[in-house]
Design a protein around this nucleic acid. Sequence first.
DNA 1: TATTGATTTAAACATTTGATTAATTCAAAT
DNA 2: ATTTGAATTAATCAAATGTTTAAATCAATA
Lengths: 202, 202
Amino acid sequence: MAKQIKAESNLSTEEKIKEAARVVFTKKGYAGTKTRDIAEEAGLNLALLNYYFRSKEKLFEIVMMEKVKQLFSFIAPALNEEETSLDEKLELIASSYIDMLIKNPDLPIFVLSEIRNNAESFGKMIQSKGYVLKTHFIQQLAEQKKDINPIQFFLNFMSMMIFPFIAKPILTVAGPVNDETFTQLLKERKALIPKWMKMMLE
Amino acid sequence: MAKQIKAESNLSTEEKIKEAARVVFTKKGYAGTKTRDIAEEAGLNLALLNYYFRSKEKLFEIVMMEKVKQLFSFIAPALNEEETSLDEKLELIASSYIDMLIKNPDLPIFVLSEIRNNAESFGKMIQSKGYVLKTHFIQQLAEQKKDINPIQFFLNFMSMMIFPFIAKPILTVAGPVNDETFTQLLKERKALIPKWMKMMLE
DNA sequence: TATTGATTTAAACATTTGATTAATTCAAAT
DNA sequence: ATTTGAATTAATCAAATGTTTAAATCAATA
């Protein structure tokens, strides 16, 4: 029995291709993805990729743009929220961002590897340079604790949220972690990371 | 003027190929690397790759094995050092590990991406499963603070050391960081990370 | 129903890519 | 100097891969 690639759906052909491209590109990266992989994943004829999207590269750019947004623009607004305290920001961001990453565990490693391969062309995708340092989040941080470098603090925050997803393959292969315990670990981190970040401020 | 790929050297042909393979594989990943790239980087005839190493895959396995060792076996012994206190371990590991990463900034993203693409086959490269949890480091941690999950703590430690190198392309493109300030940031972290880790234990 | 244009398909094309081959060069041993 | 086997090279091969083409199918409209 030939394996069913995807449940038939009422998506448009164009959208089916895009969705398949998301799946395959995210899993295998640009260089590792063959246009035939995407066609098969979508259950569609190979020529349709070029019919709807001109080229592999154009299709990739669309997916990449989406994924960069998904990874970054998620945090940006929360950092600039005027209403919330620094502690609240840490809690809200950690909780929602980790939830998002649990649903998209391949997202960080995908975006970060691809950016490395093509650093220049992603300058455009990123909004104004130095945005992070001008946010309310950083202001609040500077007020509360003057002797910590805001970049270092922010880097710690991002590290602790994102790195586990990048290291997941190692943790499951080498360490005492399987798919379930990994998710459990991550859920715990939603509350733990803000706690640890606050400890660093004392 | 044709660009000089590599300074002539007295390395053996076999070693020249391996060195070129290290450079190109680490920068572009397995799928993104063409055997002709490696030959050109080495300044050698393409056929020599197969003459000395049978295939691209075999050559890759050799390089990958090296790089996995470089990334992991560096920490393993230090974690099990009987002589040093927990605080000392944090300081020694952070300092030497970050130094190593400054010299090999592409190492983490390379190894972690490739493992994702081929998780199974790297189970063999990693030593005994659950090694980390049996180390002296973890014992000391359990004694000092019983209410913290050792995996979480260790994950934080690794996150804060490794993640900045993975995020480097973004930091330089989007943020207020260039190559010099990045290295400076990382040097500061050699002393800061142990300090933060200790704060988490209070 | 016939027509028209969009959509889909199988086949083919040109290039890239990993690998091999057969000839040549080189260095050491006789 | 000759011989011998290893090392190197240019050329080639076969498969993979991104793309295009021309024909077939479909759906809407006249």
